[in-house]
């Protein structure tokens, strides 16, 4: 208790000295006090209007300025889930082709979707016969080296050539001008 009283006395003496004797310290203390008062109302003001301005309404854009590689032409879906008997056999062949040949050989098909994916999608959308005919046509078109201005592009530069254009169903044909870019994501 005695020690505490002694400390209090020392503190008061010290404060008295700061406030009455040391002019520089007094100035600094008042400066800090006024500066803090000056700052905090601004913060409050910001909080007060946050509900009514676009700061909260629109929020911060989560955009990374780091360089990002363009998305790859196509993701491989190896899963056989949801396939019927015929689909399972066909998909197994396609999976084997992707795993043992295509992925090793590299990205050679100039189309999106690739010819193998096009075949799978064509069969899924139509039937095995029509799907095979669609694939035969696609394969022939892939042999053509002069297709530069005939197809729109996706972001990684591949030619966009969806299955929906070739099902012979007029209502699902959606034309995209060849000079445009398509976002496939």
């Amino acid at each position: 208790m005695k020690a505490l009283l002694k400390f209090k006395k020392w503190l008061l003496q010290d404060l008295y000295w700061i406030l009455n004797e040391n002019f520089v310290m007094k100035f600094i203390l008042i400066f800090i006090l006024l500066f803090s008062i000056n700052i905090f109302p601004q913060v409050d003001k910001f909080r007060q209007y946050q509900d009514t301005t676009d700061w909260q309404k629109w929020g911060k854009a989560n955009y990374s300025y780091q360089h990002q590689e363009p998305a790859t032409s196509e993701q491989r879906y190896y899963s056989l889930k949801g396939e019927n008997f015929g689909g399972t056999i066909l998909k197994s062949f396609a999976d084997a082709y992707w795993f043992f040949i295509s992925d090793v050989d590299g990205d050679n098909c100039s189309f999106n979707p690739t010819c193998s994916s096009f075949f799978i999608q064509a069969v899924q959308r139509t039937n095995i016969l029509q799907g095979t005919l669609m694939f035969a046509d696609r394969f022939t078109r892939d042999l053509n080296l002069f297709k530069l201005n005939h197809y729109p592009r996706v972001e990684d530069g591949h030619f966009y050539d969806p299955v929906s254009l070739y099902t012979l169903n007029r209502s699902v044909i959606k034309i995209t001008p060849p000079e445009s870019f398509v976002n496939t994501e």
Partner: peptide
């Protein structure tokens, strides 16, 4: 190739017509 080309010609004509309309 023959059958694929016949099918592709039909599809190509449809796409051409859709392009005209577009």
């Amino acid at each position: 190739f023959y059958a694929g080309n016949i099918y592709g010609s039909a599809a190509s004509a449809q796409i051409y017509n859709a392009g005209i309309q577009f």
